[in-house]
Simulated assay, not measured.
Amino acid sequence: MGTRILLVGKANSRWSLPGGKPDTGETFEAAAVRELMEETSLQAAGMQYLFEFAGTRTCHHVFAAHVDEQQTATPSNEITRCTWAKVTDISDLDTSVSTRGIVDVLALNRSYDPRVRNRYQRADAFVQNLREALRDVRLRGWTTALW
Rank of each mutant, 00 (worst) to 15 (best):
P18K: 03
A65K: 01
V87E: 01
R140F: 10
T99P: 01
K86C: 03
G46C: 15
T144Y: 13
E35N: 14
A64R: 05
C82S: 03
R100D: 02
I79K: 03
I5S: 03
R110Q: 03
V67F: 09
T74S: 14
D23L: 15
P22M: 10
W84K: 06
R115D: 08
N129Q: 10
D68A: 13
T80M: 11
G20A: 07
A73E: 06
T58H: 09
D23Y: 11
F28R: 13
A30Y: 07
E39C: 08
G141K: 10
D113M: 04
L139T: 12
L17C: 08
S13C: 08
Y112E: 00
S91F: 11
F126W: 02
L50F: 06
Y120R: 11
W142V: 05
E35S: 14
T72R: 14
T144F: 06
A44G: 06
A64P: 01
P114N: 03
A107V: 00
R119E: 13
A107Y: 00
L42H: 06
T144V: 12
L139S: 14
T74D: 05
Q43H: 12
T88R: 09
Q121G: 01
T80C: 12
L139V: 13
V127G: 03
S96T: 13
A125F: 03
E35I: 08
P18C: 12
L106C: 02
L93C: 04
A85N: 05
T143L: 10
Y112P: 00
Y112I: 00
Q70H: 09
A44T: 09
